[in-house]
């Protein structure tokens, strides 16, 4: 009898300490990256690091501006493609599609979420990049195809399942009575969706979009393979870019002999982490509040 009680007590202690440790993992990662990034921040002020365009590790100049711009351009473009398509599709799945069709479409979209990012990268190189190159040539723009646009398209496909699964859930949680009272007042189905359902689901949809954004922001391999990786501030969507994640993936682990190089790259990782944390925290808080 006593043994069982002891097992129960010990297991509680073990379980709760594991849980506590994992809960602080994010803080631990951020703190670790900060410690390693501090040397570079002591030498160059953080403001200069973020706004300077000169990236010459051998001369000790680390300007993150082109990389930040690369990341922002690719992510924003992806969101511009993904948001309208995802919203329309989510509304269709949750409000219009017959039950049988919904049961077919939803698992297919979940399938998209499971495809590894290198596979998207290969798809981008094989299909998206040549398509952009040929289309651009037809309208007299010279580009290799490896461009912000290619990154945007591939990323958009990758965030489809995230935005859709969250927003379908949110839209379906709008109480049925709200729809019925709107319909019984003579509103059409679209009017009901527009004025009742979307209004109620709005915060949740914003959260879904933010989650998609932060996933796109941190995506590495697929983007790395299709954006061309030229360290410049892109001036059009047909130009190459060099996102922050690609910078880290290409250079970290090598060239650690160059002074401050790893510190600079870890600062890049820290910036990435902090932005993603901020966004996903905001999205989760919105969703939690809506759930209550």
């Amino acid at each position: 009898m006593r043994v069982r009680k002891v097992i129960d007590g010990v297991s509680e202690k073990v379980m709760c300490s594991v849980t506590a440790a994992v809960s602080f993992l994010v803080v631990l990662i951020a703190a670790g990256l900060y410690l390693k990034a501090r040397p570079i921040m002591e030498i160059t002020p953080i403001k200069e690091l973020l706004t300077s365009s000169s990236w010459h590790p051998l001369k000790g100049e680390f300007g993150f501006y082109p990389f930040l711009m690369g990341t922002f351009w690719v992510t924003f473009l992806a969101m511009i493609f993904a948001i309208p398509i995802c919203l329309l599709c989510s509304i269709y799945i949750s409000e219009y599609a017959p039950r049988k069709m919904r049961d077919v479409i939803k698992p297919l979209i979940d399938l998209l979420a499971g495809i590894p990012s290198v596979v998207y990268g290969v798809f981008g190189v094989l299909a998206v990049v040549p398509l952009i190159r040929d289309t651009a040539h037809r309208i007299n723009i010279s580009t290799t195809g490896y461009s912000v646009l290619a990154g945007g398209i591939v990323l958009a496909i990758m965030v489809f399942p995230i935005i859709i699964s969250v927003s379908v859930e949110v839209i379906q949680s709008v109480p049925y009575e709200a729809r019925e009272s709107s319909l019984s007042l003579g509103a059409t189905q679209w009017q009901t969706v527009k004025k009742v359902v979307l209004k109620k689901a709005f915060p949740g949809i914003v959260a879904a979009i933010i989650l998609g954004f932060s996933r796109a922001f941190g995506e590495t391999m697929a983007v790395l393979m299709v954006v061309g990786n030229v360290p410049q501030v892109p001036h059009s969507i047909f130009e190459e870019a060099y996102p922050l994640t690609a910078l880290i993936a290409n250079n970290y682990g090598e060239m650690l002999s160059v002074p401050l190089y790893d510190s600079a790259l870890l600062l890049g990782a820290l910036i990435l982490l902090l932005i993603v944390l901020l966004f996903s925290m905001a999205a989760r808080l919105i969703l939690m509040r809506g759930g209550r």
């Binding site: 994992v22 809960s23 390693k36 941190g218 995506e219 990435l272 982490l273 966004f279 989760r284």
Partner: peptide, 23 residues
Amino acid sequence: VVRLSLDVLWGVPSIIYGVFGFT
């Protein structure tokens, strides 16, 4: 609170895990 921190962890880009792990 723990669920929130796990959800945030879910959103951390995998490259960050790689970099942190390597460090």
